[in-house]
Computed example of a mutant assay.
Amino acid sequence: MKKVIIHTDGGCEPNPGPGGWAAVIRYNSEVQEISGGEENTTNNRMEMTAVIKALEALHEPHEVELYTDSEYLCKGMMEWLPMWKAKGRLQKGSVKNADLWQRIDELMSRHLVKCYWVKGHAGNTDNERCDKLAYEEIKKIYKQKGQTPPPPIQMRLIS
């Protein structure tokens, strides 16, 4: 099985509001960046969409090292999802974002996925790149609406 390293990030400004997601996919020396956005969403949905789009980009089964700054996502994938499935909670709709969790579950069944949490805005190069790409998607949405986007979160944290 081929090994791939994926970093993902997602967010929105405000939450809920316009959102962006991004992934950096590394296979050997190849690097692929993907990103997108939605006009009305939540941070968690964008974090999850980043993983979905990254796993969809893999056209055959891979061993995946997935890095995210979302504890919700990482714990959901590695701990909660197996429990929700065993109890039938995804099908009952008693889990928030069940539609996305179901898609993540489908994609994880094709790959051997291990998820690792990384601290956001802490100098991880690929996480920082994803953050920038996701924010660029948010900016596009604001500009399409003729509005000024808010500054990126790291700028708000400094001021």
Rank of each mutant, 00 (worst) to 15 (best):
Y27P: 01
P82V: 02
A57Q: 13
S70D: 02
L73N: 01
K75H: 12
D69L: 00
H59P: 13
M78R: 15
A23L: 06
E47R: 04
G36S: 05
E33D: 09
I52G: 08
G11D: 00
K85F: 09
W21I: 05
Y67E: 00
L66I: 10
H59D: 14
V24W: 07
G11A: 03
D9R: 04
T49W: 06
R26I: 15
E71F: 09
E63D: 13
G11N: 06
E63H: 12
P14W: 01
A54K: 00
L81T: 14
Y27I: 15
E56C: 06
K85H: 14
N40T: 12
P14K: 04
T49D: 00
I25H: 03
P82M: 04
K87L: 13
G10I: 07
L81V: 14
K87F: 11
G88L: 06
M83V: 15
V64P: 03
V31L: 15
M48N: 07
W80D: 11
P14L: 03
I52H: 10
D69A: 02
T41L: 01
E30N: 11
A22F: 05
G19E: 01
P16A: 01
R45I: 10
V31H: 08
E60D: 13
K87G: 07
L58W: 07
E33G: 01
N15F: 05
P14F: 01
L81Q: 08
A54E: 02
S70F: 02
W84T: 02
N15D: 01
D9F: 02
I25W: 04
K87V: 12
P18E: 05
R45E: 09
G76Q: 05
W84I: 05
S35H: 14
H59M: 13
P16K: 05
T42E: 00
P82W: 08
M78I: 10
A23S: 06
P18W: 09
Y67R: 01
L55K: 00
L58H: 07
T49H: 07
S70E: 02
E13N: 10
I25C: 01
V24A: 02
S29H: 14
E30Q: 14
P61I: 11
N43E: 06
K87T: 14
E13V: 15
A23T: 02
H59G: 12
E60G: 03
M78Y: 10
I34S: 03
N44H: 06
V64M: 04
H59F: 13
Q32D: 10
L66G: 02
A54Q: 00
L55F: 03
R45Y: 04
Q32A: 12
K75Y: 11
S29I: 15
P14T: 13
G19W: 07
L90M: 05
G19A: 03
K53D: 11
A23G: 04
A50E: 09
L66V: 11
E30M: 11
E63Y: 15
E60K: 11
G36T: 12
L73Y: 08
E79S: 13
